[in-house]
């Protein structure tokens, strides 16, 4: 970094053609993933809210939908699919792994049922 760079100067100029094209594509991708999320969420609510879907099916189904939606958020809205996010992927998935262990332990290993 050059020592004469001023970090509080307003950034001037327009993005490059390449960036413009990328951003345009991105807008489309994001809108599609948003619509997908709305759809997924509605499916989850409907499968619980309506009597047509048996609970034995609905519960694993909505858990799966939640998983899909979280991956959409992480990889599209939060850009974890981009290059240079290796360490971020490591930390987020490690966090999810430890969180899953915690949830499992607190659900099943609290002495109510012996495994």
């Amino acid at each position: 970094m050059s020592s004469h760079e001023d970090p509080s100067a307003p950034l001037q100029g327009a993005p490059s053609k390449n960036t413009e094209r990328k951003l345009k594509n991105e807008t489309r991708t994001q809108l599609i993933s948003f619509l997908l999320m709305i759809f997924i969420t509605s499916m989850a609510f409907i499968s619980i809210g309506s009597d047509a879907v048996p609970n034995g099916f609905a519960i694993p189904f909505i858990l799966m939908l939640a998983g899909v939606q979280v991956v959409l958020q992480l990889y599209f809205f939060m850009h974890m699919n981009e290059k240079g996010t290796g360490w971020i992927n490591v930390m987020i998935w490690s966090g999810l792994f430890v969180a899953a262990l915690t949830v499992g332990a607190l659900m099943f290993l609290i002495g109510e049922v012996k495994y």
Partner: peptide
Amino acid sequence: GFMVWAHHMFTVGMGPVA
């Protein structure tokens, strides 16, 4: 290190498999 915490709790009665 994250897979073994319950070895501090062997005597609380989680069950033999756990």
